[in-house]
Each structure stands twice: as structure tokens, then as C-alpha cells.
């Protein structure tokens, strides 16, 4: 709770919130970070394995192997999401399953699954990006701003 919103609270509310805060189970931040590190690392290692696989057995270079690797990881994540397994792994792993591309695929697939009952257009189409939307919106927006800065620096002869 921020200080700004705390100011609007009555003394009774403030007292209760402090009372409740003392009794709230603490989030195990260190344990969660450790788990996230472990699972995130495992996911990336699997990805690395696929990259080597595509480079060794197919005609891919280190740069071009990225595309089939990401595609494979996405498919795996979507399959695990559809089977109802991904959210259970995620409850244990936290950030470890959200940050890699598998997490992004999960946001799309889970939203699409949930809203299938409202049809393909308004349901799946309209809601698939419900959670992933902000990532795309602000990802594109920040890329645009960074691009502008880069162009400006170049024009000034800075780069």
C-alpha cells in the first residue's frame, strides 16, 4: 500500500491494516527467487538443447536456429497449458515460468482456452491478448522511443 492511498484512510482503517499486515503470511521471496532461478534456468537449458539439435541435425546457423527453437518452446508451453499442467508448474516456479517465451505462450493459450466458449471471433480473437496485450503494447512503444533516441544520437554523430 502506497503512502498516497494511506493518507485517505481513517485511523480505524489504518489500525486494522497494520493489525492485518502483522498477521499476513510473508511471501517467501528468497525461496521463490531461488525456485524461479532454477526453473527459468532449466527452461533455458532445454531451449539451448533444441538450438544445438537444430544446428547439428539441420541446416541452421547459430542465428537462424533461434526461430525453430522459439517455435518448439512455444508449442511445448501451449501443450502443457492445454493439458492443465503449466499453471501448476508456475505456482511452484513463479517468475521462472513467466519470464521465458514459454510464459508468454501460456498467457495467450490460457486466455484463448478460457474464452473459447464465447466463440472464435469475440471470444478467442477478442480475449487472446487480454494479458499479453500490455506486453506487446508497451514493448512496441518502448522500442519506438528507443528507436527515436538511437536515430537522434546517430544524426548528432554520437554513434
Amino acid at each position: 500500500m502506497s503512502d498516497k492511498s494511506k493518507k485517505k484512510l481513517t485511523p480505524t482503517q489504518q489500525e486494522y491494516q497494520a493489525f492485518a499486515k502483522r498477521r499476513e503470511p510473508k511471501r517467501p521471496v528468497f525461496k521463490n527467487s531461488l525456485k524461479a532461478f532454477l526453473v527459468g534456468g532449466i527452461i533455458c537449458t532445454i531451449g539451448q538443447g533444441f538450438q544445438w539439435f537444430y544446428m547439428t541435425f539441420f541446416d541452421f546457423t547459430e542465428t537462424t536456429a533461434g526461430n525453430p527453437t522459439v517455435a518448439t518452446m512455444i508449442i511445448l508451453s501451449v501443450i502443457l497449458t492445454s493439458l492443465g499442467v503449466y499453471d501448476h508448474i508456475a505456482q511452484w516456479a513463479g517468475g521462472g515460468t513467466i519470464v521465458p517465451v514459454t510464459g508468454f505462450a501460456n498467457t495467450l493459450a490460457s486466455a484463448a482456452l478460457d474464452h473459447r466458449s464465447e466463440g472464435f471471433v469475440l471470444g478467442v480473437g477478442g480475449n487472446m491478448f487480454k494479458i499479453a496485450g500490455p506486453v506487446i503494447t508497451y514493448g512496441v512503444f518502448s522500442a519506438f522511443i528507443i528507436g527515436l533516441i538511437a536515430v537522434a544520437l546517430k544524426a548528432l554523430g554520437g554513434m
Partner: peptide, 13 residues
């Protein structure tokens, strides 16, 4: 909240 299969970690509360 979120879609049922969405992988977010829920807090202890």
C-alpha cells in the same frame, strides 16, 4: 482474476 490455466504464482493469502 486470470484465465484458469494462466501460470501466475498466487501469494500465501
Amino acid at each position: 482474476r486470470y484465465p484458469t490455466e494462466y501460470g501466475s504464482q498466487k501469494p500465501p493469502t
